[in-house]
């Protein structure tokens, strides 16, 4: 069970949060311009890496804010937490 440092509320138990999958996948601004393969890339393709993975988390049972987490999937260590819209840290 993680201890997650919500950028708005501070350290809280994982049970207050939900994970929203991979971060930094922006919704295409002009979906109609994309062919099926390009759209499928946005819609379905997600990374599953061993090591540092950038993820979206939501403090669902708290402030309801979304934020980004850089987590090492090999040991679940959270390396960095940063707000929506910020660039991923270099780790």
């Amino acid at each position: 069970m993680f201890l997650i440092n919500c950028p708005y509320c501070g350290e809280r138990d994982q049970s207050e949060f939900v994970s929203g999958g991979e971060a930094h996948i922006a919704r295409p601004k002009q979906p109609t311009e994309l062919n099926d393969d390009q759209w499928a890339e946005y819609l379905f393709m997600r990374k599953n890496i061993k090591g540092i993975q950038f993820e979206r988390w939501n403090h669902a049972h708290g402030c309801r804010k979304w934020f980004n987490v850089a987590r090492d999937t090999s040991n679940d260590k959270i390396e960095k937490i940063y707000k929506m819209g910020e660039q991923p840290p270099k780790l």
């Binding site: 939900v18 922006a26 939501n58 669902a60 309801r64 804010k65 979304w66 929506m84």
Partner: peptide, 13 residues
């Protein structure tokens, strides 16, 4: 509710 919040906060701030 959470889906709409998600779009508002992340895609269409």
């Amino acid at each position: 509710m959470s889906k709409l919040e998600d779009y508002l906060q992340t895609e269409w701030p």
